[in-house]
Design a protein around this nucleic acid. Structure first.
Lengths: 212, 212
DNA sequence: AATTTCAGCGTACAATTGTACGCACAACTG
DNA sequence: CAGTTGTGCGTACAATTGTACGCTGAAATT
């Protein structure tokens, strides 16, 4: 089949809309100032053609968040598998996440922003992505601590803190000049290590107070 | 003077605009979907009268952020002065901040959101408020640690983490049902303590490696 | 008392918005 | 090959936007 099938053509146009939107988000625009007509123009289609792919701008937003979240989660898994056994897993994870953030600025910002909006239809979707990552990290922390024979206090809370720091500094990085960037990355790594130390200290304490 | 002076009258109208905007933000609207006409209607004035007080919506936003930041900073100072010497300064600070956040939902959300936007004219203002609070807290942490005779590693980074957690969970609280709220507050407190432990552990380490 | 100032209003207009409606034409189905 | 399907387009319209312009009446100044 050299002729483009209808399904494929439609999928391509759909992706063209999503890509155009993501690009515009990356340039600094906030999602809710983006009009349907503008997106259509950016995607190179007629305003009314938009409706052939999304019911409204809300559906487009949800699709964007979903696609981004899936990619990010599998990426982090991949990093852990590969880096497992290396000396600095924290560093590689952080750098990978930040690189991904940087390559997908618009979406990263949108997700963090929308997760904190109030009546946003995206809030739930964004928060789900958030807690998924957090739980995932907590699970990994426990596994890793057990491997090292170090007790860990409140692993889920530690993971929450870490994810919070990762995302906030991740976004802050996007507004930072290139020369300051590595300094911020190093700072974030120290902050994560600090949390690890705290969790270990609390785990140690719990063991002393409540010996096995 | 029973007659209302012109200056006073103008100041009142100006505040009426700001209050109406803050109220609308609190109900979940994002600032950049708010139109000048809408704000004017909410404040009970004609659209064109808006210009007598602000040059445009941007000026209004800046005025809102500035006013909020000042109030918040003096509030936190006040808490520290009052609670100084008590057993749980962390707890009182956290609860005060969260209460203030709750009472000023719209503004709290807006500041956090705008600090992470990109080409927003508010970003700088919001970030300034952010770093001011962070530096302020770091200074206090050092002072407090010295008083207790405990060395602290990376106090500024510890403060950064704390502020990040305070703000993110502070916002998250606004989207939380009343019965879950106290549970989240307790979690935040543990997270802050964890960071303190981490900082102390790192301070201890530095002392051992690099004895005085 | 006469004059100036200025907050607030109403009208007006060009842009931009979401979307309803119907047509065209290429891809599919039988 | 004839018929159906459905993507994409152009037109059209009512709402809403920011803001320019000129007026009014009361407070402030002289």
């Amino acid at each position: 089949m050299l002729k483009v099938s209808r399904k494929k053509q439609k999928a391509e146009t759909r992706q063209k809309i999503m890509d155009a939107t993501a690009a515009e988000l990356a340039s600094g625009r906030s999602f809710d100032t983006l009009s349907l007509r503008e997106v259509a123009k950016l995607a190179g289609i007629a305003p009314t053609s938009f409706y052939r792919h999304f019911h409204d701008m809300g559906s487009l937003g949800l699709a964007l968040i979903e696609q981004h979240g899936e990619t990010l989660l599998t990426l982090m898994h991949h990093v852990r598998e590969q880096a497992s056994g290396r000396h600095s897993l924290i560093r590689t994870s952080v750098e990978t996440l930040f690189d991904y953030n940087f390559a997908n600025q618009g979406m990263s910002r949108m997700i963090l922003l929308e997760s904190m909006s109030r009546q946003s239809i995206f809030r739930e979707a964004a928060q789900t992505m958030f807690t998924t990552m957090s739980r995932d990290l907590a699970e990994f922390l426990v596994w890793d601590a057990k491997k090292r024979g170090v007790p860990l206090g409140h692993p889920q809370l530690a993971a929450n803190s870490m994810v919070a720091i990762l995302f906030t500094t991740g976004i802050a990085l996007l507004n930072t000049s290139a020369e300051d960037r590595s300094r911020h990355v190093e700072a974030a790594i120290v902050q994560l290590r600090m949390i690890m130390r705290g969790a270990e200290a609390m785990g140690q304490e719990a063991r002393n107070h409540d010996p096995v």
